[in-house]
Simulated assay, not measured.
Amino acid sequence: MNLSAAWRRAAVLGSPISHSRSPQLHTAAYQHLGVDISYTRFEVEEETVEEFLSERAAEPNWVGWSVTMPLKSAMVPHMSSVSTRVQTLGVLNTVLVGQDAQGRRTLHGENTDVDGIVKALKQVGITGEEPAAATFAVLGSGGTAAAALAAAAELNMAEARIYARSAARAAGGSLIAERLGLPLSIRPLNALGEDLSAGLLDVVVSTLPPRAADPLASQMPTDCKSKPVLLDVAYDPWPSALAQAWSQRDWPVTSGLEMLLHQAVRQVELFTENTRNPAAVQNDADHLLMVRKMRSAAGLHEGAEALDR
C-alpha cells in the first residue's frame, strides 16, 4: 500500500475481537467525513499489552485506538495522561495517540463508554431530567460496570446497586460510587429476580459477557410493580436470553449495539479532531447523516434517530 502523508489509522484492541463491529462503524464515519483514516482490529490480550505498545503501537500514523475487554484497566498505567473521567473510574476505552513538543509519542486515555450508555438509555426514555428517585442496577463488576456507574450519576439516579457473583470484586465499585456522589449497595447476582419482583429497580444495565447473563432469564418474575428498562451491552448473539425474557414481559429493552454506536460516535469526534473535517463541528444535518450511515453499517434500525445528536 502506498501511504500518503495524510493517511492515518486507528484500530480496536482486545480479546476476543473478531466479533467487534467497531470497524464497520468507524469506517462508515470516516468515509462520510472524507478523511483518510483506516480502521481495523488487533487481538491483544492483557498479558501482551506491553508487547503491543513497544512494537505495533510504535509504528507511525496512529491517531488512536478503541479499547475493549480485557484491556480497559490494563491500559491505564501506560497512558501519558488521562481524562478526569478515567481518573475517577480507573478504566478507559479510548486512547488518543499524539506527540509532545519534543516529538515523543503521547497516549491520552478517555472513556466514551459513559457517553454510549447515557445516549442508549435516553433513547428509551431515561433522560435524567426527573427528580433523582430512580434505582439503577448494574450486572457485573468489570470495566464497563464502572462506566455504567458514571452513567447513573450523569442520569441523575438516586442510587445504584451492583449485582455480582463476587462481592469482593464488586467492592471496587463502592470507591467509584463514592467519588461520583452516588449511593451504592452490593447484592448477589441471584437476587436480581427477587428485587425486580419487589419493584425496586428502574433501570438495569447488564455488563456481563455474552451468554453470562443467560441463567438470569429464568429468574425473571412474571409480575412486576413497574416496567424496568434493560440495556444489555452484550450484543452477540442478539437478542440475548435476558433481553428475550424482558421483551416477553413487555418491558423496555435496548441493545448493546446502541451503546456501541454512541460511544463510537464520540470516538470518531476525538479521532478526527485534527483532520480537515472534524466530526464534532459538523452541522446537525451532516452529523445525523453520519450517524445514520454508522447505524446502517452496524445493522441497526433507524427508529432512534431523534436523539442521535
Rank of each mutant, 00 (worst) to 15 (best):
L216T: 00
R211T: 15
Q219A: 10
L242N: 09
A160I: 11
A191T: 06
D214C: 04
S166N: 14
V138W: 09
P183V: 05
S197N: 11
S166L: 11
L200D: 03
T207L: 05
S240M: 02
T144E: 08
E178P: 01
A153H: 12
A145C: 08
N190K: 13
E178Q: 15
A191W: 03
S141Q: 09
Q248E: 12
S174M: 12
L208F: 13
L242Q: 07
R161A: 00
Q244D: 11
A164D: 04
I126E: 12
A151E: 06
M157W: 14
A198K: 11
L139Q: 08
L139E: 12
A133W: 10
R179A: 14
A133F: 09
D223C: 05
E130H: 10
T254C: 04
A213D: 13
D223Y: 09
A170M: 01
N156L: 10
T127L: 13
S185C: 12
D202L: 01
L231R: 09
A148H: 05
D223I: 06
E178L: 14
P215K: 10
W246C: 00
L189G: 06
G125I: 11
G143T: 00
F136N: 07
L257H: 10
A170D: 00
D195Q: 06
G173I: 00
G128N: 06
T254D: 07
S166V: 06
L155S: 14
T222S: 08
V203S: 04
C224T: 07
A241S: 14
G181H: 10
N190L: 09
P215E: 10
G199Y: 07
S141A: 15
V203H: 09
A212E: 15
D250R: 09
R249D: 04
T135P: 03
A191M: 10
L184V: 13
A146L: 04
P252C: 06
G172F: 02
A171V: 01
P239A: 06
L200H: 05
P131A: 03
G125M: 11
A177G: 11
S206F: 04
N190R: 08
D202P: 01
L201K: 02
V253A: 09
A170R: 00
A243W: 07
L149S: 13
A137T: 04
L201W: 07
L242A: 05
V229H: 08
A150N: 05
A153Q: 14
P210K: 06
Q244I: 12
P188E: 10
P210E: 12
A245Q: 02
A150G: 04
T254H: 10
D250E: 13
R179H: 14
G172Q: 04
S206I: 03
A133Q: 15
P209D: 09
L175P: 00
G193I: 01
G125L: 11
P228M: 05
V203C: 03
T135A: 13
L242I: 02
W251T: 02
G172M: 00
A153N: 08
A191L: 04
C224P: 05
G256W: 07
L242E: 08
A147P: 02
S174R: 13
L196H: 01
A134P: 01
S255D: 14
F136I: 00
L230N: 03
A164K: 08
L155C: 08
Q219G: 02
L192Q: 04
S185Y: 07
P252H: 04
P210T: 12
V233Q: 04
S206R: 00
L139G: 08
L180Y: 15
A148I: 01
S240C: 03
S218V: 07
